[in-house]
């Protein structure tokens, strides 16, 4: 009927460190503050690889999504981790607004 992959997907195990970071950022204002102060230190402590750290710091939510990161974690990492929200202006800047066109 509609050819769209599952959007709110199962979290691939390979992303467990990124997912844990996003969870902590989402739920814990103190952790979020520590991340904003020194993201590298926080990510080192959680054991994120160099590639994972680069991905987080890129704030490229579109790429994160295409790599399989769970959407609620992306929300935390792209927006909440930096104290920002996906306003119209911000999503345009970061390349959001992709359209699902495969609908029948």
């Amino acid at each position: 009927m509609i050819e769209v992959p599952v959007v709110f997907r199962y979290p691939p195990l390979k992303h467990i460190r990124i997912h844990k970071l996003g969870y902590m950022v989402f739920r814990d204002p103190k952790f979020r503050e520590a991340f904003m102060q020194d993201p590298k230190k926080v990510m080192d402590e959680l054991g994120l690889t160099k590639e994972e750290q680069d991905l987080v710091l890129s704030r490229d939510g579109v790429r994160m999504y295409d790599l399989g990161v769970q959407p609620y974690i992306i929300f935390a990492l792209v927006w909440q981790a930096f104290g920002e929200w996906p306003s119209r202006e911000q999503i345009a800047k970061l390349g959001y607004g992709r359209r699902i066109t495969e609908k029948s």
């Binding site: 939510g61 609620y72 119209r88 959001y96 992709r98």
Partner: peptide, 12 residues
């Protein structure tokens, strides 16, 4: 709505 995805900013 499509929170956290590249589809955010569109609705159906």
């Amino acid at each position: 709505h499509y929170p956290g995805t590249p589809y955010y900013g569109t609705i159906d």
